[in-house]
Nucleic acid binder design. Sequence first.
DNA 1: CTGTTAGCGCATTCAC
DNA 2: GTGAATGCGCTAACAG
Lengths: 347, 347
Amino acid sequence: MSATTIRDVARYAGVGVGTVSRVLNDSPDVSVTTRSKVLSAIEALDYTPNPIARRLSLGKTLTIAVIAPFFTRPSVVERLRGIEHVIAESEYDLIVFNVETSSRRDAYFHSVLRRERVDGVIIISLLPRDNDVDRLKQAGTSVVFVDVSHPQFSQVIVDDVEGGRQATRHLISLGHRKIGFLSDYEDSSFYFTANRDRFTGYCQELEAANIALRPEFSAHGVHSRSSAYEMAKRLLGVDDRPTAIFATSDTLAIGVLEAAQQVGLDVPKDLSVIGYDDIEIAEYLRLTTIRQSLFESGVEGVKLLLEEMESMPGAPAQILLPTELVRRDTTAPPSARSAPRIFWKSR
Amino acid sequence: MSATTIRDVARYAGVGVGTVSRVLNDSPDVSVTTRSKVLSAIEALDYTPNPIARRLSLGKTLTIAVIAPFFTRPSVVERLRGIEHVIAESEYDLIVFNVETSSRRDAYFHSVLRRERVDGVIIISLLPRDNDVDRLKQAGTSVVFVDVSHPQFSQVIVDDVEGGRQATRHLISLGHRKIGFLSDYEDSSFYFTANRDRFTGYCQELEAANIALRPEFSAHGVHSRSSAYEMAKRLLGVDDRPTAIFATSDTLAIGVLEAAQQVGLDVPKDLSVIGYDDIEIAEYLRLTTIRQSLFESGVEGVKLLLEEMESMPGAPAQILLPTELVRRDTTAPPSARSAPRIFWKSR
DNA sequence: CTGTTAGCGCATTCAC
DNA sequence: GTGAATGCGCTAACAG
């Protein structure tokens, strides 16, 4: 009930508060006997140090924040899982900020990134604006980005250019030459670098295979299944439509699958689809995709952050995680004859 | 940089710290002129009050915790979204604890639920043990459960007995008489009440329709798609197998769909499948399910918690959210040969 | 080794 | 209305 304090323990054990504090922070210089006396007092009183007071005295918040678009991206949740996994073992609390709009993002960037607020923050899939950059640099709180590439900050990323190439190369090796590209990188207020890089990879492979880039084969919109659904229907509606589509996330890919079904196209016979991330549901859907280590990206992110919180380093670090093609059942060679006509069925 | 404190502001504005504090907490009794003086000082110094110090002084942690098995249950993430949505508008921080094992759960129940640590906690889908109950009751921190029914605590739940009945009734009304039941409530260290209640509803409807309960038609295991997959294969392997399966979560239902596909059963022609929750992917899979308001359960949970933190109430409150049958494409009448059509009047 | 004391930054009395 | 003083619970520095 009434909070028992360090003073109560001291009195009960017949020692000074300093001593109690010492055993709490297991300082080496305290005799075995008094230590055990204090320990049993703590036990008897069921005492737990007040973390708030501890933090104030320490001048540290002992908390780490993560800012991310959690709920629009299943992949982010998996990264969060990795983060939580590591933080649970530490003395830090994990506080979460969900971003669904760019105004919310700006607000969080402004308010969260203050030394008084948290000791460190992990930002997932959100690129800072130029005027955020300065504030971040001099904020005094350590920051590491996950799934974002920025020259000035520490980050854990995958080589998204390479990922984009892997996906595109897979499609090309299957025999496709009309390859659509679907992403959400148009939303420049968020501006995920990942999408831009994957697009670059896409272009590179196309060029390497001597395939002309066809602008009408790529579409960019917001990140949601339904948005992808609409975009895909548009892509599939053009004359001489793509025989394969590379979507920059599994969520988008699912929207493509829906559109294909809607439009009466068999996957993979009439249309190949490849996603990105390998979120859990991808396996169930037998979706071919580019896997990246989501959980691990969270783990590595926190580890890096904790390190940098210890010793503010000069240069930003970069951890590059691997990316891997996972072949499943949504990609196949294009059908021998030219693309079948589309029959618009009502749902 | 060097943290600017309330004292700096006071000096800059030429007033006392008390006054600054007053305007910060917009106390009514402070003259307009000094107020603006202070305000501009705050502006000029880019001052933000140190939340830690504030908390210590206030004697409140200004943080709310949520303990839940987030990553094994997509539905929990959606509830979390509702929680975050409300908390973002408040002055509270949200800290998260993920539970994947029962030992982790016990640890969190023990350490998190202390007044020094948080002002309130939301526990999702985790039932306290008997010896937790006492501690919770006298912990001094407000607690509300979401998706857990317990006589002694405030909670926001759905009527899971009714939900179980709705699902079963739907199947029966379609003509099914051999109905399997799949859940994860065997895991008694977590012991989700929801599953037990849904099973009760299942039994009630069976009885109302004069269908004998067949123990070999129900299976219980851990909560995962692959576990459901195995269980379903077992269920479908028995002689005179079920023509329909009610799974107590969409995740489990997906495992059932996989098993059906594996075994060569067409859904819904050869086998009807109904889930529970209506998580996002359910719509894509065209899964018939029992929808519950996940997001809203989070919203209501926090609201209730915030209320109770204001005024420790005597009796536990209970908020009952609705449950709704969502008919999609995984349920249909059993194929003519195997089951005679019966007439059963829906209530 | 151990008790005592001075802050940590803020909210909140209490006088003026 | 407003400034000064006290305390929130803990850590760390300083004597002893």
